[in-house]
Simulated scan of single mutants.
Amino acid sequence: MNENLPPPARAPEPRSSAPRDAIMTVNRPLLCQFALAAALLCWGLAPEEFRPEAAESLLLAGKNTADLDRMEAGYYEHLLDTGRRLDGETLVSSPPKPPPFKVTDLARPVDDFRECVLEPSFTTIFQQARWTTNALGLRDREYEAQKPEGTYRAVLIGDSIGVGWGVHDGEGFEPRLEKALDTQSSTVGGPRIEILNLCVPGYAPAQRREHLERLGWSLDPDLVIVQATAADLDWDEGRLRRLLSAGYGWEIPIYQDAINAAGLKPGASSSSIKKGLEAQQLRILSDVYRALGSDCSRRGVPVVWILLPRVGRSVSATERQTLVDLAKASGFDPVLDLSDAFDGLSPATLAIGPNDYHPNAQGHAILAQRLEDALANRPGAPWTQPSRPGSAGGAAH
């Protein structure tokens, strides 16, 4: 773990004020205002030598305030594919926009680079779909934190598509893929197969890596699955641009090389930040991908990288090749380009609604089948062979 990052937040306790079957989605403006006020107070009281750490705390608390929410709202809408019609027209008259995910009851604020995690042990209706999180804070079934003997465990890191935005529990591609691979493994006498879903809506690639660092590695995975879309190309760059323009984020370690290469210093104008970071867009993503690849290589854990489509949004040949090349250069293997999974199909039959590009249950079923086809018969994969004594199975290469 990078020592320059804030220490991990203490493991959260289940929320006692909301019953497990609560059906609500509420924003928390008062909590956000309190967090900002507390952060400003800490800044004023902090000794001079500790001001950098106080600045990092201000970054993490301040980004939950209304000013930054307004600044980031349009960007996150773009990345989450909400607020536009499937015909490409911007909505002129539409229902009220949902609050940013990080201020809903499903999100628990944390004082680190991730900004929020999923509320553990919680059930609600969100965006017209039933969401249930487990004790680990994952939208998934319950798992033991300690990997059971005779189990091959994978973790999936990704964004709103990976977590199953807009579909009910169990309808996403991840639980379908887990069931298919576990059934196949059981048939051949292999290990139990687990895929733990660490995806969180709104997470940029660097936040996904941070979530793996702070939670995923403690779960002892044998495999990391990285879920990507074409939005990865500018996700971290756009997010960082908005943070720096608001005076935050200058000390985030993963972005330092790009900030330095852009020649940017605190106090730079918004136009200078925009111009400088746009020129570093690929470097920013490459730095994140390479760091993730290095993390996994150091632990001897293989990485599967999957490029998924977004309903109604085509991926250009240039975007596809750029992402595939970055993934390969980062040591991800296998690199699975599934961006054509929805080609030739009507977006209206695959989207959760006319104003949201996220795949519906049928779309997730297609993604799960494509992933199963790509992974089921890979030579040496643990679900293709009997378990050896004392082993949970082979690699997924």
Rank of each mutant, 00 (worst) to 15 (best):
K97V: 07
T104P: 04
C116N: 06
W165M: 02
S93I: 09
A154M: 06
L86D: 14
L86M: 11
W165S: 04
C116A: 10
P109I: 06
L60N: 10
E72K: 03
R153L: 01
T124D: 07
G137K: 07
K102H: 12
E115V: 05
H168V: 02
D87N: 15
M71Q: 13
K147I: 01
A135S: 15
H78W: 13
D140S: 10
G88T: 11
L79S: 12
R141D: 03
P98L: 14
S93L: 12
P120E: 04
R130C: 02
E89M: 07
W131Q: 05
T123K: 04
I157Y: 03
E89G: 11
A129D: 03
F122H: 11
K97F: 07
G83Q: 13
W131M: 05
D159A: 14
R84F: 13
F122R: 07
T151N: 07
L136V: 03
L91W: 09
R153F: 05
L106E: 12
S160F: 01
V110T: 11
Q146N: 06
W165L: 05
T123R: 08
G150Y: 09
R130I: 07
P98H: 14
I157E: 06
R114V: 02
K63N: 07
D105A: 11
V163Y: 03
P98C: 14
G74M: 03
P148V: 05
I125E: 11
G158M: 02
R70H: 13
W165P: 00
D169F: 05
P148N: 09
S121Y: 01
L91P: 06
D69F: 04
D67V: 10
K63W: 10
G62T: 04
F101V: 14
R85M: 09
V155R: 02
W131R: 02
E72P: 00
T90D: 15
H168K: 08
D111G: 13
D67L: 10
R130W: 05
L138K: 00
W165R: 08
E72T: 12
D81E: 14
A61D: 11
F126M: 03
E144G: 11
T133K: 05
H168E: 13
T123S: 14
S160D: 11
L138Q: 09
V92K: 15
A145L: 03
D111K: 07
P120T: 08
S121I: 00
V163R: 03
V163Q: 08
G162F: 01
Y152K: 05
N64D: 08
R130K: 11
R153H: 08
P96L: 08
W131Y: 14
D67K: 09
L156G: 04
K63V: 11
Q146S: 05
L79V: 12
